[in-house]
Simulated scan of single mutants.
Amino acid sequence: MGWTGFAVVFAAFFLTHSIPVRPAVKSRLVSVIGLRGFGVAYSLLSVGMLALLIRSAGQAPYLQLWPQMEWHRHAAHLGMLAVCLILALGVARPNPFSFGGARNDSFDPDRPGIVGWTRHPILLALALWAGVHLLPNGDLAHVILFGVLGGFALAGRRLIDRRKRRVLGASQWAALDADRKAAPWVHAPRSWPVLALRLLTGVAAFAALLLAHPHVIGVSAW
């Protein structure tokens, strides 16, 4: 695959992420397959396109910017464990500040969980994922890939903040954010079994990614 093919896949990746969530398109899709069906379909599409994009970066012309060192891989493993734990703690939990939240009306700013650390745990995980993958992938195509995706995740925080301020109202958003920041960083969870299950899920996801990496991405994570 040449640079043109890589650029085409990159463009397709962003199109498939942006078009389905446009209000008019999303409402039409939801009316056909339902909100849950849309969420599942969009998630599968996102993961599939991401895997295709990573494969295309591996097939692009190789131009080394820095060599891979052994500690790069160890740092990537530790970083990915953190990514999986952040996702396990942040997905499908009350979070009125970002996307991916569930039961947002039950959000307790005095016990915000991981939302007390960051308003956007999923975007933080994406930025960290991109950052740790830059270390062992020092060729131009992968630097472009992970650099753009990491920058996209960081820039997305401000976009979502503006959107949520409009939805909630500036005063309510500011009050919730102030209460979130004032809460203890470490506090007792609502449910210890649920917390344990989320942490175990994160570790299991990390192990699954290590095993699936050569089959999905085409390169061993080891």
Rank of each mutant, 00 (worst) to 15 (best):
L87P: 14
L87E: 12
A88N: 09
L89V: 02
G90M: 04
V91C: 07
V91D: 06
R93P: 09
P94L: 00
P94H: 05
N95D: 05
P96F: 00
A102M: 02
R103I: 00
N104G: 02
D105N: 10
D108M: 02
V115F: 03
T118C: 14
T118I: 09
T118G: 09
R119K: 14
I122L: 15
A127T: 05
G131N: 11
P136S: 09
N137A: 07
D139N: 12
A141H: 04
V143S: 07
V143Y: 09
G147H: 02
G147S: 01
G151R: 01
F152V: 04
A153M: 03
A155W: 10
R158F: 14
I160M: 05
R163H: 11
K164L: 01
K164I: 00
R166Q: 08
V167F: 07
L168F: 08
L168M: 15
L176H: 08
D177S: 15
A178Q: 11
A182E: 05
P184K: 07
P184F: 04
H187D: 11
A188G: 10
W192G: 09
P193R: 06
L197M: 14
R198V: 01
L199W: 02
L200N: 06
G202K: 03
A205D: 04
A207M: 08
L209W: 11
